[in-house]
Design a protein around this nucleic acid. Structure first.
Length: 420
RNA sequence: GGAGGAGUGGCAGAGUGGUCGAUUGCACCUGUCUUGAAAACAGGAGACCGGGGAACCGGUCCGUGAGUUCGAAUCUCACCUCCUCCGCCA
């Protein structure tokens, strides 16, 4: 959510954001609505002032005065009721529009329509070429009895999977390694979050109102989270944080659920795109400073890059174009790992900052050194998702004989150094 | 799932129709006193919205939303959350 005062003061900037993010929302209509809202608000407050002052006098008035005052206040009450109804009608539309207004992309964000326009800014490792024909993670994992897609589909449905044996053990090893790696590298807080949460949390993060199609819903009206970010941010809703404790650095773990509506034809095989998975997420809350947000954005991105480097998987980092940014995101980096079977880089992580877009919706504030209440800034970045990481890990570490070498960093966590 | 109780400021806790944005205590800030601190005493201090350069003025907020009333923290209804007891269950 943006501040309506900011929208009014910088209308052109916001309109440009709407255009560059390819969002559908009428800013002129919003401002017109806000004019109407303010005009009515002033009228209503004037009437209330009148009502309050007469109310004060009524107690000490004589009986005849009182009768006439009560009579005149009945009129005021009727007018007030009509105007309040109008106000509420306006406010409802106003809120709907406000929730759709996107945050403004940073100057450094390239313009573009989709992920195809994202701009690579870093490459690490060599996109591996094998002197044999590499197999896909699907073939390799099936060969070593690490996964069962047929039973997954039988039991769960489309995109279902069972991780089995060394596939399951490898996953636990990654979780434990990731937990140790991130906690050692500067995350004082660690949480396992709820996965069933109220809708308001999705409005808070900016996933709603526009991404409802991608959410699973319970019969009680809550939704399943698609990322721990949602629950972790919700944790702080309506709270006033201590500036002295900034930046809050939280490592959060949760199962994640995504309907993948709108991507039915994409990645229909394998572990790239599944309905349920697990993810460690980096979540940051800090003071309301652009410079601080930028600094921490680079820090969380650096963390995920270091983590991938420690596994020895080639990757590149892209800066996401405007059209590939979420509603609330100011800027985003994606980290993409080399997938030899497809001969391309595939997304594994996403690092974004939001300024106060989310915290304004969640009402997460702190008192600054001058005693002024401010909305905090928020950021988040994938730490590691499973099982998607297995795709590039297994394909990159496959050997000519079809066995899979375990990256050194993971060996102590696996208890084996090779599969097959 | 059934029965009962409760939600008030950072915390505790008064307040059952107007003088209540709200007594009081703790915590907090400032001052007096003190070499310093503590204690004592005096004073200050909520959030949000609108107007204004500002001092300030007006409005809203007692779980949420509706209602009754000239007027609601206080009365009515619905919902949410928490607690206690019973039942069921990993």
């Amino acid at each position: 959510m943006l501040d309506i005062k900011f929208i009014r003061a910088h209308t052109e900037i916001v309109k440009n954001a709407v255009l560059s993010k390819k969002v559908k929302v009428d800013i002129d209509k919003l401002i017109k609505l806000d004019d109407d809202r303010l005009e009515l608000l002033r009228k209503i407050e004037e009437l209330r002032t009148q009502q309050n002052s007469v109310s004060d006098k009524i107690t000490s008035a004589s009986d005849t005065e009182r009768a006439s005052q009560i009579e005149s206040m009945k009129q005021v009450k009727e007018t007030l009721r009509t105007q309040e109804d109008q106000y509420n009608t306006i406010l409802t539309s106003w809120k709907e529009l406000m929730l759709k207004v996107p945050n403004v992309p940073d100057m450094s964000v390239p313009d573009g329509n989709s992920d195809e326009d994202n701009v690579p800014i870093k490459h690490w490792g060599e996109a591996k070429k094998f002197n044999f024909t590499p197999q896909s993670h699907i073939d390799l994992m099936l060969k070593h009895n690490m996964v069962d897609f047929e039973r997954g589909t039988k039991v769960h449905g489309f995109r279902g999977y069972f991780l089995k044996n060394k596939g399951a053990l490898l996953t636990f090893a990654i979780w434990n390694y990731a937990k140790d790696f991130y906690l050692k590298n500067g995350f004082p807080e660690f949480m396992i979050t709820p996965t069933i949460v109220h809708k308001e949390n999705f409005f808070g993060t900016g996933h709603l109102p526009n991404e409802a199609e991608d959410l699973f819903e319970t019969q009680d009206g809550q939704n399943l989270i698609g990322t721990a970010e949602v629950a972790t941010m919700g944790y702080f809703r309506d709270e006033v944080l201590e500036e002295a404790e900034f930046p809050r650095k939280i490592l959060a773990f949760s199962p994640c659920f995504r309907r993948e509506a709108g991507s039915h034809g994409k990645d229909v095989k394998g572990l790239i795109r599944v309905h349920e998975f697990y993810k460690f997420e980096q979540v940051i809350l800090c003071e309301a400073s652009h410079a601080k947000s930028v600094e921490l954005h680079d820090w969380i991105q650096g963390n995920v890059e270091s983590f991938i480097e420690s596994l020895g998987i080639p990757y590149r980092t892209v800066i996401n174009c405007s059209g590939d940014l979420g509603l609330g995101q100011v800027k985003k980096y994606d980290t993409e790992l080399w997938v030899p079977g497809e001969e391309k880089y595939r997304e594994i992580s996403s690092a974004s900052y939001f300024h106060d877009f989310q915290t304004r919706r969640f009402n997460i504030r702190y008192k600054d050194s001058e005693g002024k209440m401010r909305f905090a800034h928020s950021l988040n970045c994938t730490a590691i998702p499973t099982p998607r990481i297995l795709v590039s890990l297994i394909e990159n570490f496959q050997q000519e004989d079809g066995s899979i070498k375990i990256p050194d960093a993971l060996v102590p966590y696996c208890g084996f150094d090779r599969i097959g």
